[in-house]
Design a binder for these strands. Structure first.
Lengths: 199, 199
DNA sequence: TGAAGTGATACCCTCTTGA
DNA sequence: TCAAGAGGGTATCACTTCA
């Protein structure tokens, strides 16, 4: 129905004929929060598809007050009190856990669900924790690689850096092609100090 | 092939000194599922960043057996039985709910959390349901627009279709630019901060 | 004490599933 | 057909560490 407006066809102005107030449903108020959404009017499609971040009122309310209805259970990490403790607990992983997570990450950038289950079981972590750890780890790697790239982003090297970044985050160990053979040099460059101690 | 192979650097052999098996942690088995991941070796970065889908053994095990530990509570929509029913229930929204959801969607493609809360309350749905509905609705619109585009994707019209698609799914009502002024097509709220710096 | 690191949360997106 | 589920991404936040 109301879709006709957004489809942009030249039909009659249906949008003028609403007999109930959309605004009343949405509680639309023109001032603060909604304006933020419009900050980036991208033009290309791909950018448009990127998730537009619409934090509620500057993302302050969210973390402390909301504790919204669909928060993850956080299987491990204790807590899970009835509904009182709004504090977010940050569990500290042990050296051993970090070490094995790093080792696994070095072997594979992404885990299948069975691998994740096995790793979680071996490390006494919830699958969600392992999943999030890998997510954050990939993000960290990406930032590192981008920082490296910025450090030497001159002339022709740039594109090369992009390619390197892409390779370093491929789902599996990325093969480096040489004329006649293939090296699986997964880490080497990207993870210089990865195994030293553990950060 | 724990990691020494993948590391492959010529440096001091730290990587040779692992005394536990990564494979044993990951349950790495070289044959079936892992090979699938390598099917698409993209080269450009943007494609690499796309989430590589790695369904477990063809996405069969995942849905049926897993019922993983971090499923969303699904506030409304009944069920929430102790832990027995693995059946996936699909709730059917009422005509009234659909109508108002569509109306809201026509007004805005994305909801802020307070708008979502208000709409959910008004429609007796959980916020998650409203969120998911909007998500699926955006996806549906995208598919429709892409289908339309494919129908007439010839010569110069293509790029135009992409732009149209982008505009139709902007987080807010999309502005139509004219040489000297700006018309905001479907609602006349907000947009004050459109050109404010920030982000 | 401020900056960096990192676990966790909340969105968003895509693809898939099953009633 | 379409609400959900699962998994991946980004952006933030809160809390720790550390120089």
């Amino acid at each position: 129905m109301a879709r006709s407006t957004s489809k942009g066809n030249g039909g009659a102005g249906r949008s003028a004929s609403f007999n109930f107030s959309i605004d009343s449903i949405l509680n639309l108020r023109p001032s603060e929060e909604d304006c933020r959404q419009n900050a980036d009017q991208k033009d290309t499609l791909d950018e448009v598809w990127d998730a537009p971040r619409r934090r509620e009122g500057g993302s302050r309310e969210t973390a402390l007050i909301k504790t919204s209805s669909d928060a993850r259970p956080a299987t491990s990490s204790g807590a899970s009190s009835p509904a009182a403790s709004k504090k977010k607990t940050r569990t500290i992983f042990s050296k051993r856990q970090i070490f094995q997570l790093e080792a696994a990450f070095d072997a594979k950038r992404y885990l299948s669900s069975s691998e994740r289950a096995g790793l979680a079981g071996a490390l006494q972590l919830s699958e969600t924790q392992v999943k999030i750890w890998f997510q954050n780890r990939r993000n960290k790697l990406k930032r590192q690689l981008l920082a490296d790239e910025d450090g030497r982003a001159v002339n022709g090297v740039y594109e090369d850096g992009r390619r390197l970044l892409g390779r370093c985050l491929l789902p599996v160990a990325f093969p480096v092609f040489y004329p006649d053979n293939i090296y699986f040099s997964n880490t080497d460059k990207c993870f210089g100090g990865l195994f030293d101690a553990d950060r």
